[in-house]
């Protein structure tokens, strides 16, 4: 990570990497979606509505991974004072919040035909909604304090504290009786039939690459903006 302490070196790697990640991600999303919508069989119980899975699960993963990234970057900012850490954390907030919202919306649409309800206040749904509120709060905090050192630190502390919600989301279906079903995919096993599972890694990897591409774009934009501001300040002082 220390090699990226120099923003110029970071940019020489990020600039060519962004389109590659974006396009490969888009390609994987298209391939996974075609597989999930047209090739996989319908579920024995839910029929075709199970196909929302191929969007819902990646969105949930990136909503949570996004906040994990914010927390990790915040830690690097507070402990190691890495110059790019706060830029990275801020860049992850918008796409992370967006994927959380997509997860909630697609889950709601999925819940209506299967469970018979758009929304219920069960442990999984509620903790995921809290994650969305955390993202909104992070966005408000960073835009209210942008450009100030103390503001950066407050945002970093908020990013680390908010990570407490991540294990709660993950274990909500184990700790409490919930309407949401238990975990389908573990690290080593899956309760999804192989004939229905295969497009899921494609869309998950695809959305993840797209997420990284968006984060890199936003980081580059933030660095460019910082450079413009510094130059304007120098001109004003001259």
């Amino acid at each position: 990570m220390h090699i990226f302490a120099n923003p110029a070196r970071f940019l020489t790697i990020a600039r060519p990497l962004t389109p590659w990640l974006g396009w490969i991600g888009a390609l994987l999303i298209v391939a996974g979606s075609i597989g999930g919508l047209f090739i996989t069989p319908p579920d024995y119980l839910q029929g075709d509505s199970v196909r929302i899975l191929y969007i819902h699960v990646p969105a949930a993963w990136l909503g949570m991974a996004g906040w994990s990234g914010i927390a990790a970057a915040s830690l690097m900012q507070l402990v190691w004072r890495h110059p790019l850490a706060s830029v990275a954390a801020r860049a992850m907030a918008l796409p992370g919040g967006l994927f959380t919202a997509i997860c909630l919306a697609s889950g709601s649409i999925w819940g209506r035909p299967t469970w018979g309800t758009w929304w219920e206040w069960d442990g999984r749904l509620t903790s995921m909604l809290i994650l969305l509120f955390l993202y909104i709060g992070y966005g408000a905090l960073t835009s209210a304090t942008s450009g100030r050192q103390s503001g950066d630190r407050i945002a970093a502390i908020y990013g680390i504290v908010g990570a407490v919600n991540l294990p709660i989301i993950h274990y909500s279906v184990l700790w409490w009786n919930t309407l949401h079903q238990g975990q389908s995919i573990g690290l080593t096993s899956s309760k999804i039939a192989p004939s229905m599972l295969w497009p899921l890694p494609l869309t998950m990897l695809g959305f993840t690459l797209l997420f990284v591409a968006i984060v890199l774009m936003r980081m580059r934009a933030a660095l460019a903006e910082g450079k413009v501001e510094a130059r304007l300040r120098r001109l004003a002082n001259a």
Partner: peptide, 12 residues
């Protein structure tokens, strides 16, 4: 009445 399904998905 709400239906609760489990975490398994499989073809018919």
């Amino acid at each position: 009445i709400l239906a609760k399904h489990d975490e398994r998905y499989m073809p018919p």
